[in-house]
Design a protein around this nucleic acid. Sequence first.
DNA 1: TATTGTTATACTCTATAACTATA
DNA 2: TATAGTTATAGAGTATAACAATA
Lengths: 146, 146
Amino acid sequence: MRLADFLPYRIAVLAEQSSQCIAQVYAERFGLTRDEWRVLANLADGTWKRTAQLLEEGALEKMQVSRATQRMERNGLIERKHDAEDRRGWLMRLTPEGVGLYRKMVPIVLAREAFLLEALDEDERRTLDDVLRKLEQRARQLVRQG
Amino acid sequence: MRLADFLPYRIAVLAEQSSQCIAQVYAERFGLTRDEWRVLANLADGTWKRTAQLLEEGALEKMQVSRATQRMERNGLIERKHDAEDRRGWLMRLTPEGVGLYRKMVPIVLAREAFLLEALDEDERRTLDDVLRKLEQRARQLVRQG
DNA sequence: TATTGTTATACTCTATAACTATA
DNA sequence: TATAGTTATAGAGTATAACAATA
């Protein structure tokens, strides 16, 4: 076995690099944590969302969402109100400031994604899409069964 | 922009899952850290290696290699000796115990990799290989230029 | 009694830089 | 003076579980 050819290792190394590409934007230029960035991106459609939705859509834990959203509320990026239908939970959406921040960030991170994808031709992009989906599904299955 | 379609996010989520597949083996069953696992795998060819080689081949920092190798030496997995040609540095290789541990782990982690790859056909595997290489190169370039 | 989200705590990782020994 | 590797330390991130409010 050669570590350099081992798929989980290669994916981990690529993820480290490509995550850092994006972290240079949200963290270094805009002072967000990764979790805050994921919440921001998930709320960008302007709707009210519950914590549970942000968990799922951002691949985060409830504690991470709790802390990220509290900090974002303090920083004026989101507003929160109790869910009238279930007062244990919260509904959250971006403030105008949050929307403004998002709009500043999006073109930059999309340009970075585009730069990565420029290396690939049409076929490769399509295949990559399928492959990521399939691998993720299998990996999830493997983790579950232990 | 939809986060769920955003390439760096998708790679990060996949990496989390697929790394956990392997961590369940090296960490939960064999009590190694990720760094120790990478060092073990890199020394598996039986040769003496310097710290600098382990850095490169394992995508680690010198501090991480320093700590991992110290702990592995205490645990009897590797032996270290000063490099006669440059006594600032060390040469390291697996002990018979280290080799034995590696041999127990390899079939298990390779079976897990194989399970992931079963989801892909020949074409997809070949494309994935190229795509990972290209994306990593681009991501590295992007990180460097900031 | 179970669920949603919060808080507390301990633990691991990471990043930075100071340090030593050799070169 | 520069380099290889070590140590120290502080900060960030992670995991676990206990907890309050509500269902």
